[in-house]
């Protein structure tokens, strides 16, 4: 499948959260819709459709990107990780535990995208300064005003990882 055969649906394999999945969609379908509607992965949320708010962020080969304006073809052959893939209640990611410990959230709609941005930051800089965290989350919008708690949570997670 290539960008040129955009219109017609085709069956392709997608590497999501460590497993191969077969999906059937046109090559230009936004990755977000494939994740949510075909794979039932609802963590990445639609916010703006133009990559400006961060609610739909996922990791593609370790980079935090907006899945709402990433076409399916651009994700083929790459490792995709959603917030579900970071951890769950049985095996939480340190960032997830830290968000709960700091009670960092109100409505929570932005949190999966923020988790993804923060995970990319910690992978590249395990001991970030507060300013690093704020810079890494600059493209993630939060409307409830949970920013400071979220920043504290990311710093807490970095501490927890370094102690392990």
């Amino acid at each position: 499948m290539s960008a040129r055969s955009a219109g017609a649906a085709a069956t392709v394999r997608l590497d999501v959260n460590g497993a191969e999945h077969e999906v059937s969609a046109a090559a230009d379908t936004p990755l977000l819709y494939v994740l949510r509607n075909q794979l039932g992965l609802k963590a990445a949320h639609f916010g703006c459709g133009s990559g400006e708010c961060g609610a739909c962020r996922v990791l593609i080969d370790g980079q935090a990107v907006a899945s709402c304006d990433t076409p399916l073809w651009a994700a083929l052959g790459k490792r995709i990780t959603t917030a579900e893939g970071l951890g769950d209640a049985a095996h939480p990611h340190p960032l997830q535990s830290a968000l709960i410990a700091e009670q960092a959230g109100q409505c929570g709609y932005c949190l999966p995208g923020i988790l993804v941005s923060a995970a990319a930051l910690l992978a590249r800089k395990p001991q970030p300064a507060e300013s690093d965290v704020r810079a890494a989350l600059e493209q993630n919008l939060c409307r409830c005003g949970s920013h400071n708690r979220i920043v504290r949570a990311v710093l807490r997670a970095a501490q927890a990882v370094s102690r392990r």
Binding site: L41, K42, A43, A44, T82, A83, E84, G87, D88, A89, P92, Q96, L99, I100, Q103, G105, G108, Y109, L111, P112, L115
Partner: peptide, 8 residues
């Protein structure tokens, strides 16, 4: 919050 953090 846990449900939201785990992306359920």
């Amino acid at each position: 919050l846990p449900h939201k953090v785990y992306g359920e």
